[in-house]
Design a protein around this nucleic acid. Structure first.
Lengths: 220, 220
DNA sequence: CTGCATCCGCCTCGATACTG
DNA sequence: CAGTATCGAGGCGGATGCAG
């Protein structure tokens, strides 16, 4: 029973938030669960380097504090509660901010295709959602997700779009994140064959604008 | 000389962000600097419990990574860079989320009046900014700040409003944060004399709505 | 085999003392 | 006033053990 966890002891919202999700690994656990419920083993696999005890501790603590729910049955997983889901917005904002610090692709950095799904959610600038009804589909390695723009609102969803996507982009996880980090422009990725896109040119432009990738391309 | 700091080693925006601002105390340092430049000693005073060496380490690291600038002259302080300022949004979102976890006022919890300024910024829901041009002034202990709503945009600013505020609220730091945490309604605070308000009733209502405090009051 | 608890070496943290 | 040096305590990471 590990009592006497380190608290900041400040009557302030931020300090209070950090008392819950400020410890090492915690927000990365949340990141994984933002993409859907996951079992203990799946989390362990998605978080290389985490200690098994530490993961168990974090999960217990988050359950106790109403951020997560325990697996209901054997074949389910930990899931975010309503309160936990409310971390989506701040986490995406942090992720967006952090993209500017992504280092060299290099060596021992882990990449997972489904992180691309989070990257896209982080990159979406709702203010730039045009007044159209169309979808952009992304195939990152073996993971598929899409953005559906309708009524001036852009939503990111897992899986294929139920209908015909106005654009389909195919790439690998590494290239995808690299584009998000603006270490690589979509144009360069296309030219080097690491990215392929099909669809309407104007749709591609609208998608680029939506994701803040339009710099360096001809302005629409 | 910080050797071999702990990194997550994931090619992901969130992990990358946490490599920069994920360590203990770092986001609280950012919180303080969001309210303006501060010197080493001021930070030390605003962060009870932080070690002097740790504060120095964090500051050096944040400067090296372009989040902060060193004090330009002796009588200035550390300041956020452009990149550092971009943490405002995610930090405010986190602070807002964390208000739900604020514990009992109790005993040894530190409170600072200027945290109320951050709390207000975190509570503002821009979507609910009405189509008016008015300001709400807050006097929290000896700290004064105000919200100015104009063109459907609400801005929080330090100091007095240059003009006549449509509402003036006076309270102490503890009560203020307690209201933000929704452990206390403005109505209860008024009744117990811990909060006093002057101004137009409709303006007070609009301010309450803007800050998400209208629940339990008559809907406008 | 999955899900977690226990143990241990190491590194970070927090407090104090010290220096420019 | 603004940091640096040092050291005990405890959180972290990896290996291992154990129950369902």
């Amino acid at each position: 029973m590990s009592h006497s966890r380190r608290y900041y002891g400040q009557y302030c919202g931020l300090a209070s938030a950090l008392d819950i999700i400020g410890e090492r690994w915690t927000l990365l656990i949340v990141r994984e669960l933002l993409l859907g419920p996951k079992r203990y083993g799946e989390l362990l696999a998605a978080l290389p380097g985490v200690g098994t005890n530490l993961l168990a501790d974090r999960l217990k603590f988050l359950v106790e504090n109403g951020v997560l729910t325990k697996p209901a049955s054997r074949d389910q997983g930990y899931a975010l509660t309503e309160i936990g889901q409310q971390l989506r917005d701040p986490v995406l904002k942090l992720a967006h901010w952090g993209m500017g610090f992504l280092g060299q692709p290099g060596e021992d950095l882990e990449v997972r295709p489904h992180w691309g799904f989070l990257a896209v959610q982080a990159m979406i600038d709702q203010e730039r959602a045009g007044d159209v009804d169309e979808a952009y589909e992304f195939h990152v390695d073996d993971v598929v997700f899409h953005i559906h723009v309708v009524d001036g609102q852009a939503k990111a969803l897992e899986g294929f779009y139920e209908g015909e996507a106005a654009m389909i982009a195919r790439t690998d996880a590494y290239t995808f994140v690299e584009i998000g980090a603006k270490r690589l422009t979509p144009f360069e990725a296309l030219a080097s064959g690491r990215l392929s896109m099909t669809g309407d040119v104007e749709s591609i432009m609208r998608c680029s604008v939506l994701l803040g990738l339009a710099a360096g391309m001809s302005t629409a």
